[in-house]
Design a binder for these strands. Structure first.
Lengths: 336, 336
DNA sequence: CCACTCTCTGCAAAGGTTTGCATACTTCAC
DNA sequence: GTGAAGTATGCAAACCTTTGCAGAGAGTGG
């Protein structure tokens, strides 16, 4: 079996208490004993059992993250950054890919609740009340969903929409569509709402909701022909993955982007730069999201007793203009 | 605080032992008591503390996975499948993105070793000996690296290379290059070795090693001009990400794929179907890799005592032919 | 030389669960 | 009516660590 504190104690001829103190608060122990203990610990390759420690201290050094779909590079990148932020804070991370299954999300939260210091719910699929119930007393921070009752970190969807639409407006577009993501997604609701609001404020611009689609490449393919058949010359797409699908279908149908159709989307995944034309997209810094998420978690832990309002972060976004947006075409879309 | 077994015991007017038994081995408890306990547990929302359970049973219900780079969709997809396989087996999963940092890998393994039933090391960066030392008595399975001492799951690189090269050979190519990944990567060594071997066995085919590059989009871009300047009409590329970079650069340089250059790569990431031309690629079933990885972990746990040879899985692969490969051109590459 | 302060160390409890053993109670056969 | 067999439950130890408290010993000042 693996060496325990007791083994080290025996070898160093001290008590387990001294071993514990030597390793976690060295200043409480005399230099000679400290050295004895350290040597014994090294010799045995001793590492404290974190589960046992968590049992008594109440802090486990673990966090958990739920994510909807790792096959979406946006979420993969965000996961990477969150894990990196956890690492620099000395935390280990549980990960669960929910894959659109709300019950799986609840199960995971219940299962890990006792072994983590906090839970990060990224784009939660289940209901907020159930999730909070499942978490029990464990601090929770939501990513990509805002509610007053629980701490949250969300991108500034509205500002992203403003940046995207003003860009299209400046290019002369007046008929602009919104290609939506899943109807029950908080992010989609936020973006769709912002689209309609902002479009109403732009002089001479006519906005059109083109419907809801799956937030995958295939969803963009599915939306494409509807886009071509509508009278729009530009679209804002729920996310990059869908925009890629739209682009692929456009190419097959002989619709030229950006000459006949301009496309802006959200997320700025790395592949936005790997396709032709390179995608104009609204970028949120994943590193900033991750940093704020872990800060919010720490704050929530502190504020557990003091019932202050939990922190709500809105992370700034930036439109990155590339090749998928261009001036309003003079003639309408004409698929080959 | 969260409800404990003791709270349930008090409410149900039984002992904690009975609570424990009622919930984990119901048949050992009389129907009326069982019902009392269940009702009390429901009422309090009781869920056993898994860390405490792990302390006494020695099984935690957790595993850990280290992965080199979540921004590579191949690894993101593999992570997703492994987490899914863990879920169906009732296990929670720690995840660590190593990002090419061997010391981070060692730290993580040490940190989680006490709180997991096993560790999956995907494309390990650190040395095998150090990793095994860090894991201590925790079962370890390696993915994408094979060694006799430790259980492993690897794709059949050699067969993948055979399929890719025979495909190119059948298309008439005789000058074929290999665009390599990182020199210290086990996968790259395996693929490069297989390339040279297989190419030597193909009549009239001349293989050429074109060097080592970073396993990213940028690495493919960096390799591109070297490829165009060499006399090859086809290349096998270490992975899809690099192939995408190569394709991007080819388009900018005016090199037509597959008319002037055929490209085959490894991994078959989803984006292989999202770029133009769609990429011919050697696919490994991520689901199969994941399943075998968890099977191997379970087997390693069993065989901890009996010192049998650890299991070594070689997972079959399939070349998926798409649009990036075509007949040998009659005239050599001529960048615009 | 005493009393006091400080520094260091050990004892024992606590955290929440599982499980071997013992006990109490039933049931049944003789 | 007694003994055996069987069932259901509780007690207490164990897992590994941290930490409050107490005690031992050393040093210091009067």
């Amino acid at each position: 079996m693996r060496a325990t504190a007791n083994d080290v104690a025996v070898l160093a001829r001290v008590s387990v208490s001294t071993v514990s103190r030597a390793l976690s608060s060295p200043h409480m122990v005399s230099p000679p004993t400290l050295q004895k203990v350290q040597q014994a610990a090294d010799q045995l390759g001793y590492l404290p059992n974190r589960a046992a420690r968590g049992l008594v201290t109440g802090r486990t050094g673990n966090i958990a993250l739920t994510i909807p779909d790792l096959n979406n590079p946006y979420f993969a990148g965000l996961t990477k950054e969150i894990q990196e932020q956890a690492r620099v804070r000395g935390l280990q991370m549980f990960l669960a890919d929910i894959d659109e299954d709300p019950s799986a999300e609840l199960q995971v939260v219940e299962a890990v609740a006792t072994q983590v210091d906090g839970v990060l719910l990224c784009s939660p699929r289940a209901g907020t009340d159930e999730l909070l119930a499942a978490a029990g007393r464990t601090p929770v921070v939501m990513l990509n969903r805002a509610m007053s009752a629980v701490a949250s970190v969300v991108p500034d969807h509205r500002d992203g929409m403003i940046q995207g639409l003003r860009h299209l407006w400046a290019l002369g577009h007046t008929e602009i569509g919104y290609v939506g993501g899943p109807r029950n997604s908080w992010s989609n609701t936020a973006r769709q709402g912002a689209f309609l609001e902002v479009v109403a404020e732009l002089d001479g611009v006519h906005g059109r909701d083109l419907g809801s689609f799956q937030p995958y490449f295939s969803g963009g393919v599915a939306a494409a022909d509807i886009v071509f058949a509508s009278a729009v010359t530009a679209v804002v797409v729920y996310n990059d993955l869908m925009a890629l699908g739209l682009l692929d279908r456009a190419q097959r149908r002989g619709v030229h982007v950006p000459e006949e159709l301009s496309v802006v989307s959200f997320d700025d995944i790395p592949f936005a730069r790997s396709v032709t034309p390179h995608l104009s997209s609204v970028a949120t810094s994943r590193e900033e999201m991750a940093r704020r998420a872990l800060d919010a978690l720490a704050a929530t832990q502190e504020a557990a007793a003091s019932s202050e309002e939990p922190p709500h972060h809105v992370v700034p976004v930036d439109l990155v203009v590339r090749d998928s947006t261009g001036p309003r075409p003079t003639s309408p879309i004409r698929p080959a």
